[in-house]
Nucleic acid binder design. Structure first.
Lengths: 147, 147
DNA sequence: TTTACTAATACAACAAGGTATACAAAGTAC
DNA sequence: GTACTTTGTATACCTTGTTGTATTAGTAAA
């Protein structure tokens, strides 16, 4: 695509990346502590991966993170607006929203006023999840450019 | 699947989660700084999402993160061993490895000795990426259990 | 030459998920 | 009753990616 960088993006990236370097250092340190004291067998590794797989599959299928990210930035938002922003199919969006709600990432609030209004908002679980995803997303997309 | 928790997992989780809380606090703070000073339009949001999409699609397709995670824990590892650990199809694995290599996440080293040996290792980009993914994975899978 | 071994490729079949298009419920305005 | 809005649902199609099975490439020992 090679979209020209937005001012928002640029500022966003700079701040997030600065923060990220601290994060990274901390995680690596922690990780090394664990690994150096334990040898891991292939079987253990396989189990370890399987235990992560469910939430992994849920989060990283198409649209999930995009939806959460949109909610993070727009706070309360309706079905139609999400649809317009992401240009996603009604059916697909409906499915994803249901799934995210079922797993506790978002909340659905109906206000039955004159124009029927359904608002989606992030739960704290959902919010934390997106926030944790940010450094990963920005890091991989920024080093994509450099590489 | 409901695999019984491994001791490794348990210890892993505890340490990673502790670290994660710090991380989360920092990210949220940073994020709020940005958002509060800028209003974001739907169009900007859409562009913002698109600029992240490429690396997003690359990383979060099936097997990518699993492979990177395996390499993180096993350091240098051969084609066959990855295949066995992940029980993944030859063709698929071959494709993914090529793609990850092309985008600078992993390195391919051939040692032409008596038994042909091809070793895959993480680049620093690859390593950083997995490390950044860890808190996200562990957070979402742990709150999956609680919810 | 044959066998053995790892790494990878070829190709057809299959399954999951996403999409387009149209339509349905719920409510108000005309 | 008819039209209009928003939020979805129904159906059937189609694309993409993954898999199974078999095959090739390269190297060395027997």
């Amino acid at each position: 695509m090679s979209v020209p960088p937005l001012t928002l993006s640029a500022e966003f990236r700079k701040i997030v990346e600065a923060r990220m370097n601290q994060v990274l250092k901390g995680i690596e340190e922690t990780f090394n502590q664990i690994i150096e004291t334990q040898k891991i067998t292939p079987t253990e590794l396989k189990d370890e991966l399987e235990s992560l797989q469910e939430s992994f599959n849920l989060l990283f299928q198409k649209w999930s993170l995009e939806i959460l990210y949109t909610l993070l930035l727009k706070d309360a938002i309706g079905f139609g607006e999400i649809k317009k922003i992401l240009t996603v199919n009604s059916r697909t969006l409906s499915d994803k929203l249901k799934m995210l709600q079922k797993h506790g990432y978002i909340t659905r609030n109906v206000t039955a006023g004159p124009p029927l209004r359904v608002e989606y908002t992030l739960t704290s679980k959902g919010k934390n999840t997106v926030l944790l995803a940010l450094p990963l997303l920005y890091y991989s997309s920024s080093s994509e450019v450099k590489a």
